[in-house]
Amino acid sequence: MWIGLGLVGLLAAVALLAPWITPFDPTEVNPEARLLAPSAQHWLGTDHLGRDQFARVVFGTRTSLGAVALIFALVLTIGSIVGGIAGYCEGIVDAVLMRTCDAFMTIPTLVLALFLIGVLGTGMTNVIIAITLSHWAWYARLVRGLTLELRQRGHIAAARVAGGSRTAILIRHILPAIAGQLVVLSTLDLGHWMLHVAGLSFLGLGVAAPTPEWGIMINDARPFVWTAPMLILVPGAAILVTVMAFNLLGDAARDRLDPTLAGPATGGHEH
């Protein structure tokens, strides 16, 4: 767990301190310095437009982690609200919300994300929305199950007897009780979301040039794979390390919480 936590902490520090880590502007074009080899001035060399590769990787950390953090927050928020309402209200409300979840869950997440981007248009904002909409239903299902279990406990029954409204009980008692489990289990999907962000940007559906982002950096470097392989290897390694860090953290957190709880959150995803 500590290895994963340390790597994630290091990546977060790089994202926050990017302007102080490198003196170069990641979007500054310098045709005279194109495709330079690594040197004391340009630690990872330059790309086909003369932009410093190290600066672009560092600032790309901010873009990629920022997108994943937003997806994380949105998925948990939507999933918690929908799942909590379905589990606590039951009846027709539960039926409608769960059938809606079923509709989203029948389509593989990447296929659904691509369809939504086709409807919404390209750009990182729409990528974040598309990935959120293709994943929230899994968490709504999980929250509903946990809510149904919590409803049977004594302190919830006591709150009902005391005259607490459904909304108040849901907000004050049920959602806080499952928040820790939900956050821990969602760390298992952080690497998956990172791959979605990078993959969609690689396809030209995410950030627009010249914004530094690892997926689009790999796409830009394809024509130079044999003459300047570092242009692909470095952002590819950044994606690999980040996904590995998220997976290490998620697996360790899940095992510490309860291995039997991981199934509903991640086992059904069609990646």
Rank of each mutant, 00 (worst) to 15 (best):
V8E: 03
G9Q: 11
L11N: 05
V14A: 09
A15K: 06
L16T: 12
L17A: 15
I21F: 07
P23T: 09
D25E: 07
T27H: 06
N30L: 10
P31G: 07
P31L: 14
E32Q: 08
P38T: 07
S39Q: 10
S39M: 15
T46N: 05
D47H: 12
L49E: 03
G50I: 01
G50N: 02
A55G: 10
R56S: 06
L70H: 01
I71Q: 01
A73H: 10
I78A: 12
S80V: 09
I85P: 00
I85H: 01
G87A: 10
I92M: 06
V93Q: 02
M98V: 05
C101S: 07
F104Y: 09
T106M: 10
T109E: 12
L110M: 14
L120E: 06
V127K: 02
T132L: 12
L133G: 15
Y139M: 02
R144G: 04
R153D: 14
I156A: 07
A159Y: 08
A159N: 03
R160A: 11
R166V: 15
A168D: 05
A168H: 08
I171T: 09
P176F: 06
P176R: 01
A177H: 06
V184L: 06
L190C: 04
L195H: 03
L203K: 02
G206Q: 11
V207P: 01
P212Y: 15
W214R: 00
I216S: 15
I218H: 07
I218C: 13
T227H: 08
I232F: 08
P235D: 05
A238M: 01
A238L: 00
A238W: 02
F246C: 10
F246Q: 11
F246I: 10
N247M: 08
L249I: 08
L249V: 15
D255T: 03
P259M: 07
H271K: 05
H271M: 15
